[in-house]
Simulated assay, not measured.
Amino acid sequence: MNESTYSGTLSINGIDLYYEEYKNSPEKEAIVLLHGFLSSTFSFRRLIPLITEKYNVIAVDLPPFGKSGKVTTFRYTYYNIGKTIIDLLQSLGYEEVFAAGHSMGGQIVLNMMAQRPDVIKKGILIGSSGYLPRANQTIILASYLPFFHHFLRTRLEKTGVKKNIENVLFDHSLIDLELLTGYEKPFLDPTIYKGMTKWLRDREGDLVEAALQTIETPCLLIWGEDDKVVPLEIGERLSKDIPNAELIVFKNTGHLVQEEKPVEVWEAIQSFME
């Protein structure tokens, strides 16, 4: 770590938020980075060094993932997580930022723009989730069973980190020990499964068309043509429903766009931000 880098946690709205702050200078503009489901700030490891050449960066572990809190007293709705991220940014002294979210993180960015358009200058949605409804009532009821978190753990362990990584990357040659270890690390903490159980119960579903159509903040949508997790058709639909949106598509690229095409992604983001 250099002198301009800080990592730690702040308690905001009853949850410990882990964040990494890369600060060039107070005069430079800032961008907040929000990762996707089952991930952490690690997913931006190839993008952050490029962004920090020109901007301040705040990368956050969305609760209950990564090193952020996993308490069952927190309300894990996208609305509340979005509000909590905004409160974190303002606690750190940021009044106005750019916001980029990958996958589930994109849905959090959309919620932040809907809540506080005065705080988010522009939004960048990278393979953003969209139009996913709330979990069905059977799963929600089952989540109250005392052993449900064990079921979640068994289910995820059965799939395995490597298989999940293969599913999000087009280029499997990028898979190495560092990549696998980075994505596996958060799941070595057994408390994550209780947090995920509460998250599953609380999640209210993605913003519907009518809500998306009220977002006037300029948005850049970045997609991999070969995304198996959130297909390109979701990006195309979002680009029509969000009034000020443009869509960029990369060929031979999967869901984890910023891992496969960090330079190209940064060039697109930089052009859009400036």
Score class of each variant (00 low, 15 high):
222 I>K: 06
227 D>R: 06
271 S>I: 04
67 K>H: 02
119 V>M: 08
233 E>S: 04
66 G>Q: 11
263 V>M: 12
263 V>I: 15
260 E>A: 09
63 P>L: 04
148 F>L: 09
219 C>P: 08
57 V>L: 10
85 I>P: 14
97 V>R: 08
262 P>Q: 12
96 E>F: 04
238 L>A: 03
237 R>A: 13
117 P>Y: 02
242 I>M: 05
120 I>E: 06
136 N>K: 13
96 E>L: 12
41 T>I: 15
253 T>K: 11
183 Y>F: 10
68 S>R: 10
131 Y>K: 12
118 D>Y: 01
49 P>G: 13
118 D>C: 06
246 E>I: 12
106 G>A: 04
81 I>Q: 02
105 G>T: 02
143 S>I: 11
238 L>S: 00
151 F>M: 15
188 L>E: 05
16 D>A: 12
257 V>A: 03
175 I>H: 03
121 K>L: 03
176 D>M: 07
109 V>S: 09
105 G>C: 07
187 F>P: 04
109 V>H: 10
173 S>P: 03
101 G>F: 01
263 V>C: 14
214 T>N: 06
208 V>S: 08
209 E>H: 14
97 V>H: 10
17 L>R: 09
105 G>L: 05
120 I>W: 04
163 K>N: 15
137 Q>E: 11
214 T>W: 00
169 L>S: 11
61 D>K: 08
158 K>T: 15
13 N>P: 10
136 N>Y: 10
135 A>M: 03
244 N>L: 07
166 E>P: 07
204 E>N: 06
113 M>V: 05
171 D>N: 09
123 G>W: 01
268 A>I: 14
240 K>C: 08
255 H>Q: 07
175 I>E: 01
123 G>R: 05
182 G>W: 10
140 I>K: 13
46 R>T: 14
187 F>H: 06
52 T>E: 08
54 K>T: 14
191 T>A: 07
249 V>W: 05
22 Y>D: 07
132 L>K: 03
99 A>N: 03
36 G>A: 07
60 V>A: 02
129 S>G: 10
226 D>R: 03
210 A>N: 14
254 G>K: 03
20 E>I: 07
216 E>W: 13
62 L>V: 01
27 E>G: 11
40 S>L: 08
80 N>S: 03
163 K>A: 13
233 E>T: 05
233 E>N: 05
17 L>F: 12
189 D>K: 08
107 Q>R: 03
181 T>P: 02
8 G>H: 12
192 I>C: 00
101 G>Y: 02
52 T>R: 11
53 E>G: 02
16 D>Q: 14
85 I>H: 12
181 T>W: 10
264 E>Y: 13
266 W>M: 12
